[in-house]
């Protein structure tokens, strides 16, 4: 066990526990705060993989911007006061079984994926996640998907503005 491994286990444990807390929390605000903790743990994993840029962008975009918007919506709607329907035990059980089946079909798919088959994560010495390298790859090898993604975001923004203007 070296320090990287210890950190990996601590981060993984924290990520799983806080992810469970996201689902279990009764108060939606607490769920969001736990979700932010999950993002922090994932960013920690990125740093272990020497992908500092991904780590910080994950924090800025997800933990910093998107979760703030989630908080906004929930704080303004305050769903605690409105009648939160209590699901019956039967429905909960069905949900758990359905979700578990879905997960079971995913695990072998991911295990057999050729991209990750027989590959080991590069801990601390890969440098594709550093901003210079990532930028070069994005703007040369993956230029078309990158630009298409940005068009997708633009259309989402325009859509949001159109929906917002109707009132």
């Amino acid at each position: 066990m070296n320090i990287t491994q210890i950190l990996f286990w601590i981060l993984s444990g924290a990520a799983v526990i806080s992810a469970i807390m996201v689902v279990v929390s009764r108060n939606p605000i607490h769920s969001i705060l736990w979700l932010i903790v999950v993002f922090f743990c994932i960013s920690g994993h990125y740093i272990l993989l020497n992908a500092q840029f991904l780590a910080i962008v994950n924090l800025i975009v997800y933990a910093g911007a998107i979760m703030v918007l989630f908080l906004f919506v929930i704080m303004l709607m305050n769903p605690n006061k409105t009648n939160a329907q209590q699901k019956s035990l039967w429905k909960k059980l069905v949900g758990v079984i359905a979700g578990g089946c879905f997960l079971l079909t995913w695990i072998p798919l991911i295990k057999q994926a050729p991209e990750i088959h027989n590959k080991v994560a590069l801990l601390k010495d890969g440098n594709i996640g550093l901003i210079g390298n990532l930028g070069k790859v994005l703007f040369s090898d993956y230029l078309v998907p990158f630009e298409i993604t940005s068009v997708l975001f633009l259309s989402a923004m325009v859509g949001a503005v159109v929906i917002g203007k109707k009132e």
């Binding site: 605000i29 840029f53 800025i60 911007a65 703030v68 550093l130 901003i131």
Partner: peptide, 24 residues
């Protein structure tokens, strides 16, 4: 760190939570 400025942005965006959580 080679992402110095982004780090500052990241931490600043965390500062918003102090205000939001306190206010809520």
């Amino acid at each position: 760190v080679n992402i110095g400025i982004l780090y500052i942005f990241g931490v600043v965006s965390m500062g918003v939570y102090g205000i939001m959580i306190g206010g809520w």
